[in-house]
Amino acid sequence: MLKIDGLGKTYKAGDKALSDVSFEIPKGQVLGLIGPSGAGKSTLIRCINRLVQPTTGKVWLNDLNITGLRTGELRRARRQIGMIFQEYALVERLTVMENVLSGRLGYVGFWRSFLRKFPAADIANAYRLLDRVGLMQHADKRADALSGGQRQRVGIARALSQNPELLLVDEPTASLDPKTSRQIMRLIVEICRERGLPAIINIHDVVLAQQFSDRIIGLQAGRVVFDGPPSELSEDALTLIYGAEDWTAMRKGADEDAAAEAEERAEAQKMMGAL
């Protein structure tokens, strides 16, 4: 369980990125975090595992106060928090397997990791995860040889190899096409369901957020302005988060996209049949 209490972040230049953000996430809940660019979504996620140092407030993971930890303790806490990044953030020149195993770095000593001598159980688990995300045959390829969707799957496997108790997901679909975006979101949510894993998914695509999360939090200029189930995300709520816009048209556009996608798939199947 994650509890965020009065979290605030003011950057050195004086920009207030977050102010007084508080919420709780029970076990197994998938939370979609939406808001315009610069609303503080990334900062909020990074304050939880302290890639960014919060200025005020507390973050509790189960009974551990993460904001109070010193370096060594913080490293142990980070092991329990898996993170999936925008544009994958894989180490491009390492192999897929090395990237997945790097999720175990917090658990093995330096020399073991330097010599790539990970415990057999870690390696077996890494293969299981690669199989789960459908990349079994790519284990020994270099990460930069994969496509965008495949790389994000490696990112997911890396986060899961930590055996985390919380998943932080930062714009997982930012550089993927609509179809791959859906597949990636579906995979993340499925895995959260399988493991009862709570997740915060920071996402700018409102339609995807509504489709895949149990709960939505809307940030606007560093403050929570909406907190509720996806069904309650009305046009008024969206206007509160993003400002005025023709939301009905946007949703219609998204429906058309989905329809076009379905048609394309049917078309492709027909062609395959003809061949």
Binding site: I81, A89, S102, G103, R104, L105, G106
Partner: peptide, 9 residues
Amino acid sequence: EAVTATGAS
């Protein structure tokens, strides 16, 4: 950042 987030030294 991604390697740091895993709890690496």
